[in-house]
Every structure is written in structure tokens, then in C-alpha cells.
């Protein structure tokens, strides 16, 4: 199996606070990897470094592009990383709230349009062709996720669960190889979580995606992840298959605390 994303001992320091310390993660093609840990462990910071929001204080992040070449994406612009094929969602949903469901997904197609702004403005034939391809793509994606009927609604008027799905499908419209999900099931009830689990599995299988996610719902994590990394206070305290993690003393300790009497 080839490595798609290789996080090579990255450290992120904010003044005196070390949010992430010497993190190493290897993600192989087609895997579903979960990153778990208590609140404030540095999980979202790790995501922000991979997607270019923060530049790591130390370390490198390597990404294998479609041609099979390793690219150093450390400190690249978020937009460039997205163009290379790493898409993400956000912990606190970040949809384009005042725009319609359709526009939200359509915007993600923008990076595939080669036309310059003049030919786009004048709606020249080659732009129209690209635009049509994008439109068909968006229609297909929205139908797949069951949001086609609501395409004209404002994104902010959708119920919570659908907003989460819309955010995932918006990320999918950038045609990613690696999809980073930041707490996709946050605030969902068990039913919705089950639906989401099935949904993530479906898109993973269908698009040969590599999924890397932060999640607190253990049912979801244990059910779909191939491997799990556990972070606490910026350090990796454990990694392995769901079974290994469930029985790891340090993980239990991090989550439940130490029994003083024992």
C-alpha cells in the first residue's frame, strides 16, 4: 500500500504552549484513519497544519499526488493544498450560510475551471462547456446525498444533520484524494450518527477515498476506522487497530483518569 499522506514529526508551538508535539502519522491509500483524544489534545491543530491553515513550527508534511510524486506541502496555502487533492470539513460547520445549497457545492467546483475571468464573464464556449460539466457533477453529488430537492434553499436553513452532509459533499466536489473530517458526528443523535457512518462508508468505497477524521463518537470510530491514533496533550500516546486501542491502558487513562487507589 502506498502512503498518501505522511506527517513527519510536526510540532506546533503557540508562544509557550506546545499544541502538537512531534506528531507522526502515516496514511495509506484507501484507509480510514481516526484521530481521537480528549478535548484540547491538539487534534484540530494537527488538521490545520495539514490543510495549511497553520505552518508547523517544526517537521514536514508530505503528500503523494496523482502522478505518484511526493510533494512537500508544509506551509503551502490552504487553496493550493485543496487543489492538490486534500479536502476538509470543519468542526463548527463552515458553510456559505447565505448562499443556496446548490451554490455551496458549485463553489467547490471553481478550482477545476481552467477558464480565465474574461472568458468566464463573457460566457465563451469553452467556459460554458466546463460550466456544464460542473453542473452535472453538482447535480449528481446532490442527488446522491439526498439534497437535490433542497438545492434552492439557503444553506443556513437546513437542519443540522443535513448541513453536516452538505459540508462533506461540498468537500467532495473538489474531487479530493484525501478527505479530512473534523468531528463529522458532533452534536448528532445515535440515529443520525448511524446514517453518517453509512454515508462515510459509501463515499469511501465509491470514490476510493482516503479518509482521515477526528471524532468523539466511539461507536462510529470503532466501526469504520482501519487504524486509530490517540493524542493527548499534543503527544501521540497510542496507535493501532480499534481492538488494540480499546485495550490500551494509556488510552483508558487519558480518557478516564488514573485510579489513585490502585
Amino acid at each position: 500500500m502506498t502512503t498518501v499522506l505522511k506527517v513527519d514529526s510536526i510540532t506546533m508551538q503557540f508562544g509557550g504552549v506546545i499544541a502538537v508535539n512531534n506528531l507522526n502519522i502515516d496514511i495509506h491509500e484507501g484507509e480510514i484513519i481516526a484521530l481521537i483524544g480528549p478535548n484540547g489534545a491538539g487534534k484540530t491543530t494537527a488538521f490545520n497544519m495539514i490543510t495549511g491553515v497553520y505552518k508547523p513550527t517544526k517537521g514536514r508534511i508530505l503528500y503523494t499526488n496523482d502522478a505518484g510524486e511526493e510533494v512537500d506541502i508544509t506551509g503551502m496555502k490552504p487553496s493550493t493544498i485543496a487543489q492538490l487533492g486534500v479536502a476538509r470539513t470543519f468542526q463548527n460547520i463552515r458553510l456559505f450560510k447565505e448562499l443556496t445549497v446548490y451554490e455551496n457545492v458549485m463553489i467547490a467546483e471553481h478550482l477545476h475551471l481552467k477558464s480565465d475571468f474574461l472568458s468566464a464573464t463573457l460566457h465563451l464556449p469553452w467556459y460554458n462547456k466546463e460550466q456544464q460539466v460542473a453542473e452535472e457533477e453538482v447535480e449528481r453529488l446532490l442527488k446522491e446525498v439526498g439534497l437535490w430537492e433542497e438545492r434552492g434553499e439557503k444553506a443556513s436553513s437546513l437542519p443540522y444533520g443535513k448541513q453536516r452532509r452538505l459540508e462533506i459533499i461540498r468537500a467532495m466536489a473538489t474531487h479530493p484524494k484525501v478527505l479530512l473530517l473534523d468531528e463529522p458526528a458532533a452534536g448528532m443523535n445515535p440515529n443520525e450518527t448511524d446514517d453518517l457512518t453509512a454515508f462515510i462508508k459509501t463515499i469511501h468505497d465509491k470514490y476510493h477515498l482516503t479518509v482521515f477524521m477526528i471524532e468523539h463518537h466511539m461507536d462510529l470510530v470503532m466501526e469504520i476506522s482501519d487504524r486509530i491514533y490517540v493524542l493527548d496533550f499534543g503527544q501521540t500516546i497510542a496507535k493501532g487497530t480499534p481492538q488494540e486501542i480499546q485495550n490500551d491502558d494509556r488510552v483508558i487513562e487519558a480518557y478516564l483518569g488514573v485510579d489513585e487507589d490502585a
Binding site: 487553496s79 463552515r94 458553510l95 456559505f96 450560510k97 448562499l99 458549485m106 464573464t121 463573457l122
Partner: peptide, 29 residues
């Protein structure tokens, strides 16, 4: 009007709505 109805117009609106999300969608701010 034509510019706003093109994909560049949509990118502008995305930047207005949420710069961080727009950037994550591959829009060079």
C-alpha cells in the same frame, strides 16, 4: 452581471461568506 453569474462571481461570494472555508475549497484568496 455576467461576472457575478460566472464561477468567479461565485468565488467572490464564497470569500464574502467565509474566507477560511473558501480557501479550503481551493479558492486563492
Amino acid at each position: 452581471a455576467a461576472l457575478i453569474n460566472s464561477s468567479y462571481g461565485r468565488a467572490f461570494k464564497a470569500i464574502r461568506e467565509d474566507e477560511i472555508a473558501a480557501e479550503a475549497m481551493g479558492i486563492n484568496l
